[in-house]
Design a protein around this nucleic acid. Structure first.
Length: 350
DNA sequence: AATCCGTGGGA
DNA sequence: TTCCCAAGGAT
């Protein structure tokens, strides 16, 4: 078989995407490797998340916590607030766990081998391989969504995902070169992100157009096959936005596990499959006409919003008041921020 | 093994 | 509007 990796690396030398946490192919050839901490940070943020969304967050985190030691010593709530809006909040909790494990178990230095990386919280097969290859030039094979798509097409594999993952991983591993493994890992992903895209791939300018089996078979557009997913249900709930007369907001920190775990949010009802009953007519509550709508990975959410203003000696059963000074809507996950955006207009007072 | 877990952009 | 999708991991 021809050395496909050489053709891809030649393409990468010209077309590599530039990112703040990356070291370009020219510098890498001169022996320069990126900061493992910055690479790890980028890889965790990039899990199921677009490069465009990650850029600002990566810059913010590296500015606030420039080293793994600084992050390990950070306040949990500040890290969660900084992550707000990026999604998949278990990543933020594991980010802290991982930083503290690196400090306590590895002397504050990121391990460079796949097996050890795999033991760290929030670091799975993909991320361990990515850090080992990109930050330490170890010949590990990254298999993300891009690589799965590229392999399925290159070898015209019609077995649907996720069942085909082991097969696609084997193919990807066979292609991984011993030379320039870090560049190669980034090259395959760049190819998938810019040429071998899910819709309307640019096969005409693909460095692998010659050996691509799906292109020869005319099946590129239908690959990779995937198990169809069921449609997302809708759930309903009520959010209570309570403001004290001194301007403080009533908020609660959600439990560490589950949806929006560890994040700040409004007290509210459970979210159920049935629309909530009409609110009882009382003088104290204001029911907003608009409801907050938000779509999570696996369900749509519609939240009725009830607002109230209470005196400074009010004693809430749930949550705690955050002063105007301490509260920022930017610290809320998006679903909760949407509630704030709708409620705040009715709760502006001196 | 299958399910859970966010978000924003694009077709 | 609706659906798909993006550098997955934990349970």
């Amino acid at each position: 078989m021809r050395d496909l990796s050489a053709e891809l690396l030649a393409w990468y030398d010209i077309h590599a995407r530039s990112m703040p946490w990356r070291v370009g192919p020219a510098d890498r050839k001169a022996g320069v490797l990126p900061d493992p901490y910055a690479v790890w940070m980028s890889e965790v943020m990039l899990q199921q998340t677009t490069v465009a969304a990650v850029r600002d967050y990566h810059r913010k985190f590296m500015g606030l916590w420039p080293t793994v030691g600084a992050l390990a010593a950070a306040d949990d709530a500040q890290v969660m607030a900084a992550w707000a809006g990026l999604g998949y909040y278990a990543r933020a909790r594991n980010l802290l766990k991982c930083a503290r494990a690196v400090v306590s178990d590895h002397g504050g230095v990121f391990p460079g081998d796949y097996e050890t990386l795999l033991t760290l919280p929030g670091v799975g097969p993909y991320t361990a391989a990515a850090i080992a290859a990109i930050a330490f030039d170890q010949p590990e094979t990254v298999v993300d969504g891009n690589v799965e798509r590229v392999m399925a097409r290159l070898y015209d594999i019609h077995v649907p995902l996720p069942g085909s993952k082991p097969l696609l991983t084997d193919r990807a591993r066979d292609l991984t070169p011993l030379a320039r493994p870090g560049d190669y890992a980034q090259a395959v992903m760049d190819l998938g992100a810019t040429i071998c895209t899910p819709r309307s791939p640019a096969c005409g300018i693909c460095p692998w157009r010659g050996p691509c089996a799906a292109r020869a078979a005319g099946t590129v557009a239908e690959l990779p096959k995937k198990i169809p997913k069921k449609k997302t249900p809708t759930r309903y709930g009520i959010a209570y936005v309570v403001r004290r007369s001194d301007g403080a907001w009533l908020l609660e920190t959600r439990p560490d596990s589950g949806l929006l775990g560890g994040m700040l949010g409004w007290p509210g009802s459970e979210w159920s499959d049935d629309p909530p009953p009409a609110p009882p007519l009382t003088a104290e509550w204001t029911a907003l006409n608009d409801e907050a709508r938000h779509t999570f990975t696996h369900f749509h959410l519609r939240l009725k919003i009830m607002t109230a203003t209470v005196p400074t000696d009010a004693k809430p059963d749930r949550g705690q008041f955050l002063s105007q000074h301490d509260f920022s809507p930017a610290a809320l996950p998006t679903a909760m921020r949407k509630v704030y955006d709708l409620a705040a207009a009715t709760l502006r007072h001196g």
